[in-house]
Design a protein around this nucleic acid. Structure first.
Lengths: 145, 145
DNA sequence: CACAAAGTGGGGAATGGTGGGGAAAATGGG
DNA sequence: CCCATTTTCCCCACCATTCCCCACTTTGTG
């Protein structure tokens, strides 16, 4: 279970330190790929298999699914931690998420997300009014509709 | 599992270096054929058998399947790596994929794809907005509709 | 206030991609 | 059937990138 928000530096080599609390839960490394709303997502091995095993490229995949499969896996990388607990973000990954200099590392229950300043402020922060409204929206959708 | 996107040169002899990370998973060589949207596809031996065993030319095959079978297998080639980890793309394969000078090599979970610049930019790259939209489309289709 | 743990930064060695030359094999024409 | 030309394959050398290691700074804790 990944919880909390951390603000870490990305150095000139694209290295980003993953918080020690998160690292402890990823003893065998992790997989990083693109996510919705311009974030990057870090999966543990088990969670990755669970999420992605359904997405395979076969001659029966429809066009949209082919495209998603290519983007998702093409953007993904297995990454291990160096002796300092860092991973390396590729130039492509940094470009997609708009990451330069600093990044927000957010624990989201089953996975970790990496955001740039601007996007995290837009998506992750909310006034009490917004928070309440969105919670109610989700509840309503689940109830029936 | 093949992950990541690499941009490699195709030299005047048609040679293309396959990323070391991919090569490790193909100790006994690979099979290369044509794929949808103008890419080339590289299969490991096991994946090739699994994918293509369903596609056989029999007296019961409908006309379209006959054609697909002929194209898929007619274009396919076994290929091994040279001491530098490169494969040789035939003139026919380069022509089909429109590859001149540089190629994108993309790991797509169960297989590897090879793209020219233009096509990969069109299919593989996406803004966060596009990526989010396509992911939602696929999710919606799967949910039921 | 001191010690330990965690994050940051840079330098050097090793790995991986690129390009060219030459030998062997295949092809085509006389 | 033999010779000439082209193509394929193998080997070697160079260069860029990546990875690993070490040292420093900052933060948190006893």
């Amino acid at each position: 279970m990944f919880l909390g928000t951390y603000r870490h530096a990305v150095d000139s080599k694209g290295r980003l330190a993953i918080p020690a609390r998160f690292r402890e839960q990823l003893p065998t490394g992790s997989i990083i790929s693109k996510g919705a709303e311009g974030c990057l997502q870090v999966y543990g091995p088990d969670e990755w298999v669970k999420e992605q095993s359904a997405l395979q490229l076969t001659s029966e995949s429809p066009a949209e699914e082919r495209r998603l499969t290519r983007m998702r896996f093409g953007a993904a990388r297995e990454c291990e931690f160096d002796a300092q607990g860092r991973i390396v973000l590729s130039a492509d990954q940094r470009g997609y998420a708009g990451i330069t200099g600093i990044a927000w590392i957010v624990g989201v229950n089953n996975l970790i997300e990496i955001w740039n300043d601007e996007n995290w402020r837009r998506i992750g922060e909310a006034t009490p009014e917004e928070y309440t409204r969105i919670q109610d929206q989700v509840a309503e959708r689940r109830r029936g509709k």
